[in-house]
Amino acid sequence: MNAPVRIDLKDVSSFPTRRVEAWKYTDLHRALRETPPVSPHAEVAPGGPFAALGGDEWAVVNGRCVGFAGVVADGPGEQVARLRFVSTADGAGHQARVTVEVGAGASLLLLESYEGQAAAYVSNVALAISLGAGARLHRVVIEDDAADALSVSVAEVTMGKGSHFAQTVLTTGARLQRHETRLAHPGEGAEVRIDGLYLLDGARHADLTSVVSHAGLNGVTSQLTKGVVRDTARGVFQGKIIVERGADGTDARMGHHALILGERAEVDAKPELEIYADDVQCAHGNTVGNLDEAALFYMQQRGLPADEARALLTQAFLIEVVDRIEHDGAREVVREWLTARL
């Protein structure tokens, strides 16, 4: 039941429907009835949302990046890689498989962006991420897809002994968008932080799904996702933490909190804890609410126009996720990205 769905844009039968439990809020088959025309080869100028942070840039445009054999980080010091997935062809589809390898003891800041520069495209990305023993990976993902795009990104993460994986995904959604992370936690000394933020308006949809599987002793996982939906937008959070038999001493905490700011907006949350071990600490909290009317009036009474008061309260709600990004430069980029979209 936990077997991952592998989507192949050339094979309509691989598109999951809502009858597949893990995809019940994100029915790709309904949105995409036939295989899309293949996107043409294209190139883009260097840049992207993280351009100011430097590092190696890899731009996968319409599914292709000439001469790119995956991101590899080895050796001492923190390395920076900017991995851009850019879509430039209207109404066309493309897919890419990318590997990210962080060698034993190495440290990588992976700045990943999904940039929609066209209309109604279909983008399907699969990443295989591996961390060697004692490796550190800090993955920050910004998804700026077009409102009418279909976009799927699935990452499989394997972790070596004592490695650290920290992830923050930020998205404004698409017509249908899924960001999935499947992670095997080795326990003992390894740490995982896996956060998300969605800010959706119009008819946009975003699905943040994660499966963290604890197989070893004393593993630590911390997860915080926050979201805001307006208009008729729909946010989906599916967070599953599995504690396998024998993974005693696991400490896993999951929180998902959302604000629904439109009468016809929707949030679907499915936090799941599956625990087969003893002596574990697992907690999850899930809340859905609205902006505090009393706080809104208070702010307006001091002179803030209603829109500004709402934006400030919304930012205050979401900023907790941004504040958990350890890298100063990445956190600043994300903060500005968020502020510009409130």
Binding site: Y298, Q301, G303, A306, L312, L313, A316, I319
Partner: peptide, 24 residues
């Protein structure tokens, strides 16, 4: 006028129970 417009005209209400605003 809306509350913010009244505030800009000089109206200030000191609340009996001032509101807490986390994050700001």
């Amino acid at each position: 006028l809306d509350p913010a417009e009244r505030a800009a005209k000089g109206v200030f209400l000191s609340f009996q129970y001032p509101i807490e605003i986390p994050g700001v």
